[in-house]
Amino acid sequence: MDLSNRTGWSTGSSLAYMKELAAYWTDEFDWQKVEDQINFYPNFLTEIDGKQIHFIHVKGKGRKSIPLLITHGWPGSFLEMLKIIPLLTDHQDFSFDVIIPSLPGFGFSEKVTATGCNSRYVASLWYQLMQQLGYKQVGLQGGDIGAGVSTAFALQYPEATLGLMLNYIPGSYQPFLKEGEVFTAEELTYKKYIADWFAKEGAYAHLHSTKPLTLVYGLNDSPVGLCAWMLEKFYAWSDCNGNLDSIFTKDELLGNITLYWFTETIHSSVYIYYENSKSPLVFGKEDFVKCPVGIVKFPKEISFPPRIYVERGYNVTYWNEHQQGGHFAALEQPELLSKDIIRFFKQINV
């Protein structure tokens, strides 16, 4: 066995980096600072459909301010979104009332491992959350699982959706092809790429979707085990160019991982993969996201379908591609993402 590759990342989270990070975690990391960042914003708990849901709600300072519901994914959390809050709420002319819930089973939201807690169900919880907050309509933003939840919301509650801004296309999304329609060569190339990607990089998702319980005994019992499982994705999916420290601070990485540790939510968080695998976003004949849809593409995103593939299922009115950034857009490139969000929602004149 070649041990030399354990300093690198080719077979998983680098041993050298894990040791460095674990030493920092033990001796220097200050959770109190994370708590201060969390508590700087107004946090709330509410009960929806018998489940406790955590969310941040910050009112915008603009003369015009529209509600924007931002949904995170895995291995992220609501913490990913903290940097983007002031960029969306502080403008004097046009701003957002930002609502950032924790998905069920993530962070301070209740652990739900009951059958049926998939993206479509979470969308129904978000609809009720919107109503509890007194809004009749919201704008939606999301990446990763949050893109699936936001898409489901827009499909299920079109009358309540002002617009949908995605920085990721849900992995299970498949548009409906009318009789006689076929995918273009570009789309077929993308589908081949996705199949290859899943074969090489998708083991984690397959495990989450099939045997999540077996996985989590170890992860819930060992902070380093939990850290390694999650960190690999921050390395692989971000625009870090082989150096995690170039794009994230250790405090940012460990704040998120420590949140999972303290709340013991690794099982309940990965469980949504299991539920989503039984309810993929395969669009039927009647499924089309009719509201205005903005798409922002960051170059190091896991994968991104060609525009035509997206337009088969979404009413794309805004498309922007950046030269830097990855999967964790709000954390990696909060300025770029916030500018796109503002531009898109201004453009659709809500």
Binding site: W31, E35, L45, T46, F108, Q132, L133
Partner: peptide
Amino acid sequence: MIKPFECSIS
């Protein structure tokens, strides 16, 4: 019912 929440780990 919506109630305020403050994070505090023991």
